[in-house]
């Protein structure tokens, strides 16, 4: 079987526990993503979502296992993978243009300054921040800072975008606008996206696949939900689709109940679940394909 574009193969992450020994945040985690896919991860606070993202970014190393991207194991951060940080991560002493230019000049080190700034300005225009180039991050609103983070990520033309709750600090209106922009840009440029979110509707609107993570410690990928909504969905139409409510209810039911009691669910007789191939479900379609292997 050909390997997927991104292949998370049995990774574990353990931290020294305060009372001695080690806490396992998660172990033996398997998951794969194809090129151009938009994947959202949903799970409760502290289950290890950021840890997975940091491992994908190369900022953190798994205690066991490996992540293979395009046939090569990750060895540290790479300009091919842009990270949009939860706390936007802008350098406060640089202007908007300075922040984006810093990324551009890091990617293309031999470019002259004018070319770097020109490229940076284009990225800033893409997120609708033309006119704010000379402002410092402190002079920007939360939404504008988040846009600069997105512009910086886009400017280096990455192959993969890793986003850690990029919109969670924003008001509903700004969030909607930014979601539209990011979705448009990612679809147009064929980005592969791994995004963490707490917002069920955001995941439904943006994702092709939604990964459901159980509560930690020892968090697992309980299911992978494929999104039945049409790819050219529009924000105001999604809730009219017949599959919308089954999908939403399925995710909310997971967050409210199943994420906590997943271990008991596994212990039920007849339950089949395989770490290496978490069940793929599509709520709202009559026949969800049956899982293949018994729980292990």
């Amino acid at each position: 079987m050909a390997r997927s574009y991104i292949s998370i193969e049995g990774i574990a992450r353990r931290f020294p526990a305060p009372e001695g020994g080690r806490t396992t945040i998660f172990e033996d985690l398997w998951f794969a993503m194809e090129r151009g896919e938009f994947v959202c991860v949903i799970g409760h606070s502290g289950c290890g979502k950021t840890t997975v993202l940091n491992i994908l970014a190369g900022l953190d190393e798994p205690s066991e296992g490996a992540v293979i991207i395009d046939g090569k194991a990750i060895e540290g951060p790479s300009l091919d993978r842009a990270v949009i940080f939860q706390s936007h991560g802008l350098l406060p002493w640089r202007t908007v243009l300075g922040n984006v230019s810093y990324a551009v000049s890091s990617k293309w080190r031999d470019w002259p300054k004018a070319k770097v700034e020109d490229h940076a300005r284009k990225a800033i225009a893409t997120v609708g921040l033309t006119g704010a180039e000379m402002k410092k991050p402190a002079q920007l609103s939360g939404g504008m800072k988040q846009r600069v983070g997105i512009a910086r990520a886009l400017s280096i033309e990455p192959k993969i975008m890793l986003m850690d709750e990029p919109f969670s600090a924003l008001d509903a209106l700004t969030r909607g606008t930014l979601q539209d922009e990011v979705r448009g840009i990612c679809r147009n440029t064929g980005q592969t996206v791994f995004m963490i979110t707490h917002d069920v509707d955001e995941a439904i609107y943006l994702a092709d696949k939604i990964v459901l993570m159980t509560n930690g410690p020892d968090a697992r990928i309980a299911e992978i939900v494929t999104n039945p909504l049409p790819a050219d969905r529009s924000r105001n139409e999604v809730h009219k689709h017949p599959a919308y409510y089954p999908l939403r209810n399925h995710i909310i039911d997971f967050l409210v109940a199943r994420s906590r009691s997943f271990a008991e669910e596994l212990a039920q007789p007849g339950k089949v679940w395989n770490r290496r191939a978490p069940p793929i479900v599509t709520p709202g379609t009559p026949d969800t394909p049956p899982p293949l292997v018994r729980a292990v």
Binding site: G58, L59, F85, G89, L91, Y102, S106, I156
Partner: peptide, 25 residues
């Protein structure tokens, strides 16, 4: 840590990192 991580994800070398991130910070 965030600022250092920015430099890391951009594959900035140690000397450039010292002058463009650590020193201004």
């Amino acid at each position: 840590k965030d600022w250092l991580n920015v430099a890391r994800t951009l594959e900035v070398g140690p000397v450039r990192k010292a002058f463009t991130v650590i020193l201004p910070a």
